[in-house]
Design a protein around this nucleic acid. Structure first.
Length: 431
DNA sequence: TCTGGGGTCCTAGGACCC
DNA sequence: TCTGGGGTCCTAGGACCC
């Protein structure tokens, strides 16, 4: 059996941990730029605050209901996430925990006897809550997709389930599938749900009445076929070992204020590239592919989004690199090629792809030794020094000049809580 | 210049996840 | 006025090869 452990209203729970007076009060957390609502406590859900809804549209409702609002504080969430995952690792054998996102892990429960499953799961939940202060829900079933179904139901009926639900018989599985709207199924997003509704498929159970071939045809090929089998109880999405290196590294941001000049765009792109390059070096890798994207401010009729189409440009370096200066330079050329004078921009970003481990950077036969080993070593040493200083001093003390110093485009975060657990200056104080 | 089948590699873009 | 950020996987189609 496979379980999924999911933190309840994770970001809100993190905020409450250091503000216990908010325990049974409505709380929400906003996305970057204080744009939209990305986490809600149960009390906030109860007064009709929708997930993903824009902050400015909910502002009145939030005030009226006395909802406490936080900007996102990723230092805090990242640290508490780590504590929860570490707790799981100490409770389960090596290789049985797959961290799936900041607030979720799949756990392999094959080693637990069926009759002991429920008691084990409950004790796991209690220990996590006791050790970290974060409450979780756990769904258990024969496959990953079914464990997600179990988890959703456990959360929906907290009073009855106590946030733990185990689907260990065909009967329970079928009942659970019948209670699950098709759009709630893991792997069925907005587009597929719409399509399936047209075919008269409204619950997860309805989908299982079709054939694997049908799912293959209508739901994106092998992905759909796999989901179909998983819902039928045949496990085909294995536990993944911890991924060491990412295949793609992105740093993208909305601007705090709209940007109209090439100069500002260049600053932003240089800044984002510096961050992306840091992430790259942290995983001891180098990248060949560079993509720059900018998004103009422009109404598009009939579109869900309130911005113009994303403009992208990319290149491949002759040789993979992890040096900020080598990555910034081509990125700046790309952004210059994309920029159109007279337009207003609201977002920009960089994406590094074609990522290889640092140890296997391929030389290029046709590149005339610009990267003699001596020069390469110097570049690495410089990067290491920059990374170390920025890490120990916090907040980019050392920057490349191209990143600028004024940064009018920086994002807004007006209601961020202190970084209680990762900054000495921001430790919580007891009176 | 025309004709065929089978394969690889690459990129762009769509769908999804949290 | 104001709608997030960072990922994954897969498919289709073009270029190129024999």
């Amino acid at each position: 059996m496979i379980g999924i452990v999911d933190c309840n209203s994770f970001y809100c729970s993190c905020e409450r941990l250091f503000k216990p007076d908010l325990l049974h009060k409505p709380v929400v957390v906003l996305s970057n730029n204080d744009g939209c609502i990305i986490s809600r406590s149960d009390e906030a859900k109860a007064v009709g605050v929708e997930m993903g809804s824009p902050f400015f549209m909910q502002k009145k409702n939030l005030e009226k209901n006395g909802v406490t609002t936080f900007s996102s504080n990723y230092h805090l969430y990242g640290d508490l996430s780590w504590r929860v995952m570490e707790t799981l690792r100490t409770m389960l054998p090596e290789g049985c925990v797959e961290v799936y996102s900041v607030d979720e892990s799949f756990i392999d429960l094959a080693h637990i006897a069926p009759e002991a499953l429920y008691a084990f799961t409950v004790s796991l939940k209690n220990i996590i809550e006791q050790w970290t202060g974060i409450s979780v829900s756990i769904g258990v079933a024969p496959t990953k997709a079914l464990s997600k179904v179990a988890n959703k139901l456990a959360k929906k009926n907290k009073q009855i389930t106590g946030c733990v639900l185990i689907l260990d018989t065909d009967k329970k599985i079928i009942q659970a599938l019948q209670k699950t709207p098709i759009g709630d199924v893991w792997g069925i997003g907005y587009q597929y749900a719409k399509k399936l509704n047209i075919y008269g498929i409204n619950t997860a159970y309805d989908l299982t009445l079709r054939t694997e071939n049908w799912a293959h045809q209508e739901l994106g090929g092998v992905v759909g076929a796999r989901l179909f089998r998983e819902l039928k109880g045949f496990s085909c999405i294995d536990m993944q070992s911890e991924r060491v290196t990412k295949h793609m590294i992105a740093t993208t941001r909305m601007f705090g204020n709209p940007v109209t000049t090439l100069h500002e765009l260049e600053e932003a792109v240089a800044t984002y590239m510096s961050r992306a390059a840091e992430k790259l070096r942290r995983q001891h890798a180098a990248a060949r592919g560079i993509t720059v994207l900018i998004v103009p401010k422009q109404e598009v009729k009939g579109s869900y989004y309130r911005h113009g189409p994303t403009k992208t440009a990319s290149i491949r370096l002759p040789v993979a690199s992890a040096l900020t200066n080598e990555l910034v330079k081509p990125a700046l050329e790309l952004v210059r090629s994309l920029f159109e004078a007279g337009k207003t921009y609201k977002k920009a970003g960089v994406i590094l792809s074609d990522i290889v481990p640092e140890s296997v950077i391929q030389g290029n036969l046709f590149v005339a030794v610009p990267t003699s080993s001596e020069k390469l070593a110097k570049g690495r040493a410089l990067m290491e020094a920059v990374d170390n200083i920025n890490f120990s001093m916090r907040g980019d003390i050392l920057k490349f000049a191209a990143s600028g110093t004024t940064r009018n485009w920086k994002m807004r975060q007006e209601m961020r809580s202190p970084r209680y657990t990762t900054r000495w200056e921001e430790l919580p104080l007891l009176k």
